[in-house]
């Protein structure tokens, strides 16, 4: 059997994201930059949700691990540690380490426990942030985070911030693609028939835990991207409600392919910006779209487009 490291969907996703590098040649609009930054951060976060959805697990833990990654960067910034490579590694590894015991614990139990525990976790993270002011600045957060430095150069301009976010999103997509491609058979078996997979000898919880650990690392990258965009780490950035946003991006975009979280995030972040200052109403739209996807368009945007395409060409 042919085994490629990446599938064509991964490559298309990388190409779509790489287009972000060329946007500054076309426009200097602050609004466009801002939306794109949100999209890149959202794509990373949604990919962490997507990894777990590959195994039928709905994760609310994304903001929790984003907070760990984001605050790691912000606290390092207070000590003037801003090297991009170092902080990328740190913002990935720390959340992943925290996820190891948690995953080993919860993923041996029924899938339902995973949903419940990650949801509670996202609520608890807020309390942790508020209760540890000496480390995280409590309700004030950490302001004035210095911009990243790449090979000793400060990446402080709007354009550089955008390029860095774009690079992080591509890195996250690459990691996600490699992971899901490498364990494709295992994840697909778990998604389709977990009981059969287990009875054939697959140690299901171990693959779930592996996915969870990598997903946590990727969430950490999203936290890094967010803090670098805002130059602030604040509890409200990692609010448990945002977990629902990332889940919506992924489900509405389509869980069948990595293009789902990428395109879903793009479409919904754009739509949310159309609400202008009434962004809080966007969740109602997400709710309606989730209902629609579950009831009539199981493949989300990507799945539906693919099905239509197939019908036209066949």
């Amino acid at each position: 059997m042919r085994r490629n490291l990446l599938g064509w969907a991964d490559l298309i996703a990388l190409l779509v994201l790489a287009a972000g590098f060329f946007v500054p040649m076309l426009t200097h609009s602050v609004l466009v930059y801002s939306i794109l930054n949100q999209v890149f951060t959202g794509v990373i976060a949604a990919e962490s949700v997507w990894i777990m959805l590959r195994m039928n697990l709905l994760s609310f833990a994304t903001p929790t691990f984003m907070a760990i990654g984001g605050y790691t960067v912000a606290i390092a910034g207070e000590y003037n540690v801003t090297d991009a490579f170092l902080m990328t590694a740190a913002s990935f590894i720390l959340p992943a380490l925290v996820a190891i015991p948690l995953g080993a614990l919860v993923l041996r139990l029924r899938g339902t426990y995973f949903v419940l525990v990650t949801f509670v976790l996202s609520q608890i993270m807020q309390l942790v942030l508020f209760e540890t002011p000496s480390l995280t600045g409590g309700s004030n957060g950490i302001a004035g985070v210095p911009p990243v430095t790449l090979f000793g150069t400060e990446m402080g301009t709007n354009r550089q911030v955008l390029e860095f976010a774009c690079g992080l999103a591509m890195l996250a997509t690459l990691i996600t693609g490699l992971l899901t491609r490498w364990f494709r058979q295992h994840f697909a078996a778990i998604e389709e028939n977990e009981i059969l997979a287990e009875s054939l000898g697959l140690v299901v919880w171990r693959y779930k835990a592996m996915g969870f650990v990598v997903a946590a690392g990727i969430s950490g990258l999203a936290g890094y991207s967010l803090v670098n965009m805002l130059l602030t780490a604040h509890p409200s950035s990692f609010d448990s409600g945002t977990a629902v946003d990332f889940i919506a991006y992924t489900i509405i975009g389509g869980r069948v392919s990595i293009l789902g979280p990428v395109l879903g995030t793009g479409a919904l972040v754009y739509a949310t910006n159309l609400f202008g200052t009434h962004g809080q109403y966007a969740q109602g739209l997400y709710g309606v779209l989730i209902l629609v996807v579950v009831l009539v368009a199981r493949g989300g945007i990507v799945g539906t487009v693919a099905a239509l395409w197939r019908r036209r060409t066949s």
Partner: peptide, 24 residues
């Protein structure tokens, strides 16, 4: 012992209903 461990130790089972990975 969990099902995967029993299977790995050399005891396999079949299912009453058809049980395959249907989409592949």
């Amino acid at each position: 012992k969990p099902a995967h461990a029993v299977s790995r130790l050399g005891l396999a089972r079949s299912f009453q209903q058809t049980n395959t990975f249907k989409t592949v």
